[in-house]
């Protein structure tokens, strides 16, 4: 669930209020307000769309987790996506490997299972 909007980084552009698919946030005087935490599905979209890397979403989707240190994680999702990079930067060049790797994983599981059954 969304845990923190860091006031020292946030410029109150309210992009997170706009992009949240479940309308968790309200506009606020200094920074947006987390108004409906029970509707947060931990989808990280607010973090991804935050140009200032000012938002930290804690990983548990079922319960709030106060007290975590957000600093090591700020902006990681945004950078990993190459969110602000131009289209021709090639940051999705590895994406084609997803399907074959899924298939390879399925084969690994199937071979291992068969080998074990023969062993029993």
């Amino acid at each position: 669930m969304i845990a923190q909007i860091l006031a020292d980084k946030c410029n109150n552009c309210a992009q997170c209020v706009s992009v949240c698919p479940t309308f968790v946030l309200d506009d606020g005087p200094q920074v947006p307000v987390i108004a409906r935490l029970d509707a947060c599905q931990t989808c990280y979209m607010c973090e991804l769309y935050c140009d200032r890397q000012a938002i930290y979403v804690a990983p548990d989707q079922f319960a709030p987790e106060p007290g975590a240190d957000p600093l090591p994680h700020l902006g990681v999702i945004w950078r990993d996506h190459g969110w602000d990079r131009p289209g021709e930067a090639g940051h999705l060049d590895e994406y084609r490997k997803l399907g074959p790797l899924l298939g390879e994983g399925a084969e690994i599981a199937a071979r291992r299972y068969q080998a074990q059954r023969r062993g029993v």
């Binding site: 931990t42 990280y44 990983p59 994680h73 990681v76 999702i77 990993d80």
Partner: peptide, 10 residues
């Protein structure tokens, strides 16, 4: 991380 950056985060 490059293919699906949402996967490692949790």
């Amino acid at each position: 991380r490059q293919i699906q950056p949402f996967t490692p985060a949790p």
